[in-house]
């Protein structure tokens, strides 16, 4: 009908001519499976990689377990603190906003330390020297340690410092905040975690 018709048929006949003398190659299936396999592997790796990258800080569920080597030489495991409310604060001595909350955290710690509340400070990519100096500067007395090999930060998927997680008595993450806090905010968060524990014995 149209010119196009003719060209389409040309294509078909051409293809037929080329295709004719070709027996099915042995091993062709192998190649198809190989290529398919490679594609699937690539897709899985990059799909999972992207999902992993896009994960954000956990805000509920069990808090990832870790053992913190404190600067005073103890090892504190999160698991051993079951039954207590745990405030996990990620900080660094090079971080400006952390400085504004350091004294507030210490004050909150002084207020709650005898009420079944534990504070853990975790210094992100910091050095012992600078971390010690920072703790001295702000008179911080609750246990602090460096996050060696950035393992704990990776578990909690932090995106910066300061970030604070409140863990309830059962070891669940109760709250998460990524702004510098004042004493009032910290107290409110701790109270919420404490009362939650009482309501569901």
């Amino acid at each position: 009908m149209t010119h196009l018709h003719a060209t389409e048929q040309d294509v078909l006949t051409e293809a037929a001519v080329v295709a004719e003398p070709t027996p099915a190659k042995h091993g062709a299936n192998f190649i198809v499976f190989l290529v398919g396999g490679i594609l699937v592997v690539l897709a899985v790796i990059f799909g999972l990689g992207l999902r992993h990258q896009q994960q954000t800080q956990p805000t509920e569920g069990f808090a990832p377990l870790f053992t913190l080597q404190t600067l005073s030489g103890e090892a504190i495991s999160l698991e051993s603190l079951r039954g207590q409310v745990v405030v996990i604060n990620f900080w660094a001595s090079w971080c400006g906003p952390c400085r504004s909350e350091a004294a507030e955290l210490e004050a909150a710690w002084q207020r709650y330390k005898d009420q079944g509340v534990v504070f853990l400070g975790i210094a992100y990519t910091d050095t012992e020297r600078n971390a010690q100096a920072y703790l001295q500067e702000f008179g911080i007395t609750y246990p602090n340690g460096l996050d060696y090999q950035t393992k704990i930060s990776a578990q909690y998927r932090i995106t910066g410092v300061p970030e604070t997680f409140i863990i309830d008595r059962e070891g669940h993450i109760n709250e998460f905040v990524m702004v510098p806090l004042n004493q009032g905010q910290i107290s409110a968060m701790i109270e919420r975690a404490l009362t939650k524990g009482q309501n569901q014995p």
Partner: peptide, 26 residues
């Protein structure tokens, strides 16, 4: 340093890297 992705410590301008350089010096 983990704060500057894929940039070597000698050229990273953040305070964290400056502290790491001090640590190297010490």
């Amino acid at each position: 340093c983990p704060v500057c992705e894929n940039i070597t410590l000698d050229t990273c301008g953040t305070l964290a890297c400056a502290q790491w350089r001090d640590e190297v010096r010490i």
